[in-house]
């Protein structure tokens, strides 16, 4: 295939995006009294946020909460889940409870969070923690099941016990599935932080969106905030996916 044809192919998605942006701008232009901004207005809004240093500040605040909430949940849920998944009776006991708690939207926890932690960072981190804990717990429990029993038998055959067994057989075997589960849970965390910030704190990207609207109908900033949220969410997802591709984890995905 010739070079020009190849470039054309590579550019097509951008052409499509450009086309969508054009449609958007047209739609807005047809309603000049409307509050909804066009892509140009949004771009200017992003510029404004950058100039005031707000974008960076709020993005960092959101990421800070997500990181804390997610890590706390991971550190607690994953070892717990592995242990529970290993012991059948423990699983029988805990699984139904976890299954009931998981679908409770973290946002439904908001009043409780505010009750326990007041309005502020802790409440937001708690919400993210709750949103991540149960999915991670269930992922860890399920990952233990999926380990092919062959690996466990080989480990026992070679006389590995205790910590050796866990670190050299169990952990590498469950790691791929844990990473996939972590990626999905991180997506949930990012979703939750936006909601948590809309309701219970005074900084962060979620707050930016709700505040921009409440204090002056600045929809250009609202959409700018949305795009930044989307971008960071995308980067988080891509980052986790590249972790999945790390050599020592890749084996699990190469099943035909």
């Amino acid at each position: 295939m010739s070079g020009t044809a190849r470039t054309f192919l590579a550019l097509r998605p951008f052409a499509f995006l450009g086309f969508l942006l054009l449609l958007w701008q047209l739609a807005v232009a047809l309603r000049p009294d409307g509050l909804m901004p066009g892509p140009v207005g949004v771009a200017l809004g992003v510029g404004e946020l950058l100039r005031h240093g707000l974008l960076l500040k709020y993005a960092v605040a959101s990421l800070f909460r997500v990181t804390w909430g997610f890590l706390l949940a991971a550190v607690l849920a994953i070892p717990l889940g592995l242990v529970i998944g290993w012991h059948r009776r423990a699983e029988w006991a805990i699984n139904p409870l976890a299954q009931i708690f998981r679908p409770i939207s973290p946002l439904a926890w908001i009043p409780i969070a505010i009750l326990w932690f007041g309005v502020g960072d802790l409440a937001a981190i708690f919400l993210i923690f709750v949103g991540c804990f149960f999915p991670l717990l269930l992922t860890a429990m399920s990952a233990v099941h999926r380990v092919p029993s062959v690996y466990l038998e080989v480990g026992r055959n070679f006389g590995l016990g205790g910590w050796d067994f866990v670190s050299r057989v169990l952990y590498p075997a469950v790691a791929p599935q844990l990473i996939t589960g972590a990626r999905i849970t991180l997506g949930i965390a990012w979703l939750v932080v936006v909601a948590a910030e809309m309701i219970s704190v005074n900084s962060g990207l979620g707050f930016l969106i709700i505040d921009a609207r409440n204090a002056g109908n600045r929809y250009d900033l609202v959409v700018a905030g949305m795009l930044v949220i989307g971008l960071i969410g995308l980067l988080l997802d891509v980052g986790m996916r590249s972790l999945e591709r790390v050599r020592s984890f890749r084996w699990s995905y190469s099943e035909d």
């Binding site: 998605p13 936006v194 909601a195 969106i209 929809y219 971008l231 969410g233 995308l234």
Partner: peptide, 22 residues
């Protein structure tokens, strides 16, 4: 897919909750 996918991947991570004001 090659044409549409990037647009999908850009819109997808925008939390539905961020869409609330819009």
């Amino acid at each position: 897919n090659q044409v549409v996918n990037p647009a999908v991947q850009l819109l997808r991570p925008i939390s539905p909750i961020a869409w609330i004001p819009v």
